[in-house]
Design a protein around this nucleic acid. Sequence first.
DNA 1: AAACCGTGGAC
DNA 2: TGTCCAAGGTT
Length: 351
Amino acid sequence: MRDGKAEAAALLSWYDSHARVMPWRVGPAERAAGIRPDPYRVWLSEVMLQQTTVAAVRDYFRRFTGRWPDVGALAAAADAEVMAEWAGLGYYARARNLLKCARVVAGDLGGDFPDTPDGLRALPGIGPYTAAAIAAIAFDRPATVVDGNVERVVARLDRVEAPMPGSKPELARLAARLTPEARPGDFAQAMMDLGATICTPRNPACALCPLEGFCKARGAGVQGDLPRKSAKPPKPTRRGYTYVARRDDGAWLLEERPARGLLGGMLGWPGSDWAEAPDPAPPAEAEWRPAGEVRHTFTHFHLILTVLAARLPADATPRRGTLVPGPKFSPGALPTVMRKAHDAARALVEN
DNA sequence: AAACCGTGGAC
DNA sequence: TGTCCAAGGTT
């Protein structure tokens, strides 16, 4: 069994000249000079990056830190403001847990994030990956970070042929063996940069890889086939009706979704259940006009939404929803599927 | 522990 | 077009 020291040294050397630049990151040169990243920014970026690409996160990170520059400011924010700012980024439980976590840190921990994986792991929305990432990156603790990039890199390095997710514990062990005692924060980010730019899922750029000489999969020519993954079940298609209504004074009929479940806590248009054969469920008496169909794919099903639009008289009394004044409504505060419905209905309800 | 939970880009 | 995938966590 190797101890991984040579691999770690080669990777860190590569990172010193190839580290990606990101708004939340302290680069290897600054870090060598003793500069540490702000734990608040590391935490915020790590939560945003859960199952989400760097490209998608950049602007959200800038807006959040511009508006809430520290954990105290975020903790004091109104729930609806945070959910609206998160709209479009997906996995909305992250935003709800983000606020819970900020309030624990600001309220119970004096504004300081824990600096150990166990302490971090106890906070809402922080699991094994994020706890290790914050401990390593923000506090330079020797924690092993295991995300999809790391799993792919070590699966190839050690030619692990067993399929995911069953092989995850084995891949985590292999990753831990690679982690050096020095520069754990840089090492964690180096592994992720390598996975994102060189050791990519398809067509890895092995000729540019600092670990090529160590890589068992490369040696056998099977790097493109690893890590293997068990087949995913097909996505069923569900249907639904959604109702975009605007009162004559310009107010929109909206509804806050239940706090848990799909799009939990987000603003949306009232509508039917999403099922194989849903019943229509108009939220008010009105002349509903067809505004087309919206197609959208969620994590585990396809959705075909029939959009109905109507104008409501000034004295209308809807059965459901809340009338939001026109100037207070922004489609940007809606999750994407609801914004699509707004786009489809807009022309029919404009003033 | 298997299911649930978003979105956009690449191919 | 459809499928895969991305710095996963919670229940």
